[in-house]
Amino acid sequence: MSLPTIAGFILVAFSAILLIGLSLLKDKVKASFRNIPAFAKFNKALGTAVENGTRIHFSLGSASVASSRTAASFSTISVLRRIVELSAASDKPPLATSGDAALTILSQDSFRTAYRIAGAEQQYNATSGRLAGVTPFSYAAGTLPAIHDEDISANVLAGSFGVEVGLLSDAAERTQSFTLAAADSLPAQAVLYVSAQEPLIGEELFASGAYLNAGRVHHVSLYAQDVLRWLIVIALIIGAVMKLLEGML
């Protein structure tokens, strides 16, 4: 086994132990997170959508489930399920568009599960989870009509995107709907910083489940993420100091 593989194994194993350990501690872990105004604004937009009978649009991105970039979309699917549960009584159900067929099937499954949990199975409609296109730009082109014509009052553009996400956030801006946007790639984050109303940067994308109360495991996961980040920061500082000392000696 090579050194990077050993380091990777140790990181994965330690993260798993941390996640499971913190989950078992249950309520003993009192994690407090910094205020991210975008999530408070989204909660407000959700309430407005339910009251006004308008729709919330989830754009899950176009990464294939077989690729390593799909984690961002999986994270958003958990939020989608939570939001569908909360808005099950609404006249118009949320809408989820994706650029990968398997992701579309997963989003439909999340709709079905959420309605079952909310006791409103009759509300389920297979076309609420849609495949909009199978390449990044065809996905953007297929999603634009949904943003313009489907009575959308809030958009959650969170998943694996490239720069094409700029077209979606621009369309949302033109319809004067609320936009919470996050992506896993750097070019997409730069585009969203300029064009989206409420952009999330970096790991904030993976915090959405914890901030929108998608389940206790999301709180624990975010807490573990913070612990790991601090450990990496400490390791980086130690590495830099050692390098400096090596140069001086």
Binding site: V12, L19, A71, F74, S221, Q225, L228, I232
Partner: peptide, 12 residues
């Protein structure tokens, strides 16, 4: 940050 988020999402 994104890599840590991806790792923990995968583990979840």
């Amino acid at each position: 940050g994104v890599a840590l988020g991806t790792l923990l999402t995968g583990l979840r």
